[in-house]
């Protein structure tokens, strides 16, 4: 539910660009993929912002850039107003405590050689002084309890748990450093429906109790609608629409958002068999050679000559709901 302070931004992405250099054979460069091609986005303290889009559109790259696993080619990542790329290494490492990342596959993201207790204590070994050593065991127990695991789980290894339990461990581990922002990259996508609901509820409870903010990355529009306050829709490295959950889901303005919402299966789909369904043709173009003008124009049923020539900017019209389209649907 609504959280203590929900106004000042804690994370700001400012025209972020992240590229991967492709290597072809040894040493030879095969060009660059602009996986994130100019993304601006704000996450405020204690809120949940959803980032949706199809695979390959650059969601994980945004996540990896925020937590510092890859360096941006240009643009800025500001955490509480401070530019992460200009921070000295030492301060950067301290700041790492404030931003945590939870991956899609909890098994791959937990060191298989470490017990749960060791996994949870690892951050305290790294950031000495965060939790005094004599309180480690107690703290481990309280973290496990917090995420719905039992104290005796502490001595087991990740492979002895089910998928949902492993994700709980990953969450506990992220919480161990008391972060202010958690980036969840498809963190519930690999889970079965019933377990997914447990984890979604847990994430919500944690936010209510601890005031942590989430950047919640997912390709599942239903889940995003459930958990997020605001939503950004990404296509081929760019954000095409962003706004409050209600405005985006009730009045999608970008043709891509409309198609995405129409394509997402829902429990009610059996009711209207011949419902107006927008089925996009073709596939997402390669980010190696994005289309000129609007990146979506090759699949867009609204596209006109102007879309080929001029790239639409992400502009706010009358509302707090910017759309990057020359011909957005009226809201």
């Amino acid at each position: 539910m609504s959280t203590p302070v929900m106004d000042e931004p804690i994370l700001e992405l400012d025209d972020l660009v992240t590229s991967y250099r492709l290597t072809r054979g040894i040493g030879r460069s095969g060009g660059e993929v602009r996986a994130v091609a100019g993304v601006s986005l704000t996450v405020r303290a204690g809120e949940t912002v959803g980032l949706v889009g199809e695979s390959g559109c650059g969601k994980s790259t945004v996540a990896r850039t925020i937590v510092g696993l890859v360096r941006p080619s240009s643009g800025r990542v500001l955490f509480e107003g401070r530019d992460l790329s200009t921070l000295p290494a030492q301060e950067m490492r301290l700041l790492r405590q404030d931003i945590q990342l939870i991956f899609q596959d909890p098994y791959a993201s937990l060191n298989p050689r470490m017990t749960v207790a060791a996994l949870l204590k690892e951050p305290w070994r790294i950031h000495r002084g965060l939790v005094p050593r004599e309180r480690w065991d107690e703290e481990v127990r309280s973290l496990l309890d917090r995420v719905g695991l039992r104290a005796e789980h502490a001595d087991r290894y990740p492979h002895q748990f089910s998928g949902g339990q492993r994700q709980r461990i990953a969450i506990a581990r992220a919480l161990a450093v008391r972060p202010r922002l958690i980036v969840c990259d498809e963190s519930v996508s690999a889970l079965d429906v019933s377990v997914r609901a447990q984890i979604l509820n847990l994430l919500k409870d944690l936010q209510r109790d601890l005031g942590v903010a989430y950047l919640f990355i997912s390709h599942d529009l239903g889940v995003v609608r459930h958990i997020c306050d605001r939503v950004a829709v990404m296509y081929l490295g760019k954000i095409v629409e962003v706004g409050s959950k209600d405005s985006v889901y009730r009045h999608p303005s970008h043709p891509y958002t409309q198609a995405l919402l129409s394509a997402a299966p829902s429990l009610d789909d059996w009711r209207d068999d011949e419902r107006r369904e927008i089925v996009l043709g073709g596939d997402v173009p390669s980010p190696l050679s994005p289309p000129s003008g609007c990146r979506f124009r090759t699949r867009c049923w609204q596209a006109q000559d102007r879309c080929r020539e001029e790239e639409p900017a992400l502009i706010e019209r009358d509302t707090d709901h910017p759309v990057a389209c020359h011909f957005p649907a009226p809201s």
Binding site: R64, V67, G68, L69, R93, L94, R96, Q97, I99, Q100, L101, F103, D105, A108, S109, L110, N111, P112, E122, P123, I126, H127, A170, R173, V177
Partner: peptide, 11 residues
């Protein structure tokens, strides 16, 4: 990913 997650921890 588990190495990445250690990096994210600040190791």
């Amino acid at each position: 990913e588990f190495v990445d997650s250690a990096r994210v921890m600040g190791a």
